[in-house]
Computed example of a mutant assay.
Amino acid sequence: MASSSKVRIAALNHVGLTVADLDRSIAFYTGIFDVKVEGPWDRTGPGVGKVTGYPGCSVRQAFLNFGRTDQLLELLEYTNGGVVVDPANGNAGAAHFAVVVDDVDAIYADLSAKGHSFVSPPITTSPNPLFWGRVTYLIDPDGFRIELYQPLEA
């Protein structure tokens, strides 16, 4: 491939999150969201170490299907690799993902009453052509931010 060409991407297939305890994360996500769990699977062997950059590692893996097989959340638990990082949004290297919901205020009230943590109550974003709505960040057991996004119409 020539250095001046750009790679054309057909679609975004999945987002991967490395978690401390796969079973705990599956319980968290399936307890809140209507998702189908694919897996878990144990991944071992030299190929896993080669592709991840952790020779000799093994990985427990599951995919969460939110209703579209081309938009998945991959959960990975490395059984012998890596260190714990602070996934707060302001830290370089941190990431979050957003899910579209119908009523962010009702979800926030329900999940808060059940003891789930959020960064803040829902707010309304400033309008722009690509993103305008009510949002809040739900925090998962590993500190990842899950943006709950309720689109608004002009």
Rank of each mutant, 00 (worst) to 15 (best):
S58Y: 00
L111I: 06
P151E: 02
T18M: 06
G82E: 01
P127H: 12
V101C: 12
G143A: 10
L73Q: 08
P129D: 15
I32D: 09
V51K: 08
F28N: 11
V119A: 13
Q61N: 12
D110F: 01
M1S: 15
D23I: 04
V35W: 09
Y29D: 11
A20Q: 15
V48K: 08
G53K: 03
T136D: 02
F33G: 14
G93S: 02
A27G: 12
R145E: 13
D110C: 03
D140V: 07
V85Q: 09
D140T: 08
M1G: 15
A20Y: 06
F33S: 12
G45I: 00
P55K: 07
D140Y: 05
L17H: 10
A27D: 14
S58L: 00
R24K: 14
V19E: 06
I146Q: 07
L148S: 05
D23V: 08
Y108V: 00
C57M: 04
Q61H: 10
G45S: 09
V35Q: 11
V83S: 12
V84L: 14
P55H: 08
H14D: 11
R24N: 14
A92E: 03
V37C: 01
T79N: 09
A92W: 03
L72Y: 05
S120R: 02
P122A: 13
D105W: 05
V19T: 13
K6T: 15
L148I: 03
Q71P: 02
L111T: 10
N13T: 11
D105H: 12
I107T: 06
G81P: 01
S3C: 07
A10Q: 08
G56S: 00
N65I: 05
P46W: 00
H96P: 10
V85S: 10
I139Y: 05
G67A: 08
W41V: 11
Y54L: 02
P122H: 11
S126E: 11
G133S: 11
L64A: 13
P87R: 03
